[in-house]
Design a protein around this nucleic acid. Structure first.
Lengths: 345, 345
DNA sequence: CTGAAAGCGCTAACAG
DNA sequence: CTGTTAGCGCTTTCAG
């Protein structure tokens, strides 16, 4: 079923059919009606691929993700909302882990799709930011290092401080940190928030208490184990995202450590899975759906030729209290704070 | 950045570059190495669009959804898992509500993408099933009426019986049903399960207690209100999906009806949002992620030229008890059962 | 107002 | 082994 079929059925040329489809001027009303009738009868829809190859304007925006996991799928819900009524359609592209490990997957995706198929794209946690692309781009929670790219993220540092201060407020003094992907700006900010909170409470940073999980299942499990098998193990762990926090919960169960009585765990993201965790996870809420919605809205503005006032949107984070945190069982506080005890704010 | 650029940089023809890219025979090792070097240096990736227009084989499979909501995004998580290591990439296509209302959106999508861009597709809750497509297709939870299409669904009737029997077991006798999209086979099965459970308990069907929400927010709210403002209102409501169950919870709050003490509510699907509902929703679990995974696995088999033994997969459903159900407060049971009291199984 | 023809980036014969 | 050529389905000048 091609435009040629429609043309021959209607007894006109493909050029005429094309004009009718695209509402171009220069077609007699009678001809247009006849062609339209054939289109309707045949149920013809023009090939997105062929059209985009030729015209470089598709009314489709792309969302490029490394994988479809809880974070990106939450984001899609918000993106979908923003698309409603915009006249655009949505294509989500994922190598499904095919090239996830390789840094720069988003660059590969872009050269495969950009210039054709999509008019603009939202890049979700890209590893390499390139400001020079043929099409408008918006990054969500991008790689470290400034780039000219419009972006939306959330207040990661504040969220991390909130999480750490919550644990401190409960009386914890030995607080482990399960760090995220070192290349992500957001992960770095979360580490910073953790350190700042400790410092503000005059607690020296113990390098043993920081392990890198890189947001990867295997590595997170290893990191959690390292933390929980320490001679003087932490009474609480702040994990840089919910998935690694859930991994920590799992590891605690394996090691026979009760949560929250013997170990408190805080996550980051507030993905739906955090509520279903056992016990339900105390975590830092990041408005993921809103981030998706605003990224698409920003992209739509860009596509519309506008010059948005705000080109870097940072959404607020807040703490969600559930059941994975409690005061430390023993007054270890005394024991852990062997160092100086300043009174900084 | 096109294949032509690579060709001129390498001092060869585009045909040679194409051969190198696709690993075709008939290229001198030295030439191939030189071309590859240029490709790497330039970071060239062939245009998916151009390639697919020409070769009709893209190594990409499509997942076609009407909208990105909790059900479809859960499904995507499973689909993504199945894609890992398959060598295929994934494109999710959604009009984002652009043409959702129009029956047959999946047909439109297919003619836009099929034959080009994707080698096969998973159709999520399609409204019109067409067995004759140019590419392999798998339907998830499709439209009513048999079609030759390979499909995966879940045991909807059993799930609905389980839900209704749970309410009956608690002592409820006036049980409302908030029905789903009439065109979906699954919705019909859920209605059937509801009716069968009532019948098995000798409770006559009260037409007032059945309202259609069609899985739509507005309609579900209206249907819930109709149910809850009945003179002799039901003591329990079984909603055909979680979203309408959550809508019912919301309507109960608006009307000042306490859940579960004054009203029990059961949903269907077990989407993540059901855990977060207030109160957490008792619901029928449908293994949505597995459905996505198996749909993709089935499609992959089809794409590989296999003739799968099973071409219609039905996954089990089960009841998840949470906090939105309880025995009815008053012994209304006596009052509601004015009709005959048979003892059918 | 309509159609013939060129060409988007690529692949697949087919010659050389 | 390499390059020339045709053409995928569509849009877009440009003649008629």
């Amino acid at each position: 079923m091609t435009i040629g079929d429609v043309a021959s059925h209607a007894g006109v040329s493909v050029a005429t059919v094309s004009k009718v489809i695209n509402g171009r001027y220069g077609v007699a009303a009678a001809t247009a009606a006849k062609v339209q009738a054939v289109i309707d009868e045949l149920g013809y829809e023009s090939s997105l691929v062929a059209r985009s190859l030729r015209s470089h304007k598709t009314n489709v925006i792309g969302i490029l993700v490394a994988d479809l996991e809880p974070f990106s799928t939450e984001l899609l819900k918000g993106a979908s909302r923003a698309i409603h009524g915009s006249g655009y359609e949505l294509v989500v592209y994922s190598a499904g882990g095919l090239a996830v490990d390789s840094v720069g997957w988003e660059k590969r995706y872009l050269s495969r799709l950009g210039g054709t198929l999509i008019d603009g794209a939202v890049l979700v946690t890209p590893t390499v930011v390139e400001a020079d692309a043929a099409i408008p781009l918006v990054a969500v929670d991008p790689h470290r290092g400034r780039s000219g790219l419009p972006m939306v993220d959330s207040d990661n540092r504040r969220g991390a401080r909130l999480a750490t201060e919550h644990l401190l407020g409960l009386g914890h003094r030995r607080i482990g940190f399960l760090a995220g992907r070192p290349d992500l700006e957001s992960a770095e900010q979360r580490a910073l928030g953790y350190r700042q909170a400790l410092e503000a409470h005059g607690i020296p940073l113990d390098p043993d208490l920081v392990q890198i999980g890189a947001y990867e299942q295997e590595l997170s499990a290893d990191a959690a184990r390292a933390l929980l098998t320490l001679p003087d193990r932490p009474t609480a762990v702040f994990a840089a995202n919910d998935r690694s926090a859930i991994e920590t919960l799992e590891m605690a169960r394996v090691l026979g450590i009760a949560v929250p009585s013997e170990l408190s765990v805080v996550g980051f993201d507030n993905i739906p899975e955090s509520v279903m965790a056992e016990p339900p996870l105390t975590t830092v809420n990041q408005p993921i759906q809103d981030m998706g919605r605003m990224a698409v809205e920003l992209l739509l503005e860009l596509l519309g030729g506008a010059s948005p006032a705000q080109t870097h949107l940072t959404l607020p984070t807040d703490l969600v209290l559930r059941s994975s945190t409690a005061p430390p069982r023993l007054p270890r506080a005394r024991r852990g704070t062997s160092g100086r005890r300043t009174t900084s704010a």
